[in-house]
Design a binder for these strands. Sequence first.
DNA 1: CGCTTTTGACCCGCGC
DNA 2: GCGCGGGTCAAAAGCG
Length: 225
Amino acid sequence: MSSTSQAMLNQGLFEDQEMSSQMGLYTSPPNWNFSPLGYHQSLRLLSSSNLSSTGADITCHLSENLSSMAPKHRDITSLLGELEAASVQRSSTNIRPWGEVNQYVGSKICSGDDHLTVAAMKMKKVKVRRKVREPRFCFKTLSDVDVLDDGYKWRKYGQKVVKNTLHPRSYYRCTQENCRVKKRVERLAEDPRMVITTYEGRHVHSPSHDLETSESSSHINNFFW
DNA sequence: CGCTTTTGACCCGCGC
DNA sequence: GCGCGGGTCAAAAGCG
């Protein structure tokens, strides 16, 4: 069994630097079927003030019964569902710009009386970073191997011990020429069995597996936009 | 020999 | 201005 298929749990969260600084939100892009690496898929809409804060977190377990979610979260879930449906209709590749997604979700949330509105308004005061960053997507996976086989070829270009973590963070770049996608890999301090992988940027090419084998890997294509 | 990994140095943004 | 910390560079080492 490959390292990929051994992955048992994935939690996804997405960041949109520009919009989050304005709206105080982190949202997922519309192609929800982003995770071929595990059996469990999830989507998170977060307050950017604190990624781990429970108050503003909305977790949408797409593969599970959404009725188990708290009532205040259902509206968000349904609008995310709307967004997904619209996305599928509009684009065969199921890709939409980050800004558009954020605007959509942000406007819905800010029009309500949810505590998220407060969080979003507060975030307007947050300084906007000058440096333009690529959209980022991170997920955690229960795996004994650090680098999951995602179909792309990566070259390690750095490793750093980050403060308050027991395990070093590794930095990888896609080996494909003209592709500027990067990823960071680190283990969760509280649970070393969990690997946190953060992708930054979009690949401008197909996974290298496509070139090496004739086996279909369409799910991986979907995953990395 | 060419590609990848390692690792210390350096850069840069941010908070004080 | 200074120090801290995260991210990147690049030379050297490792490996097939």
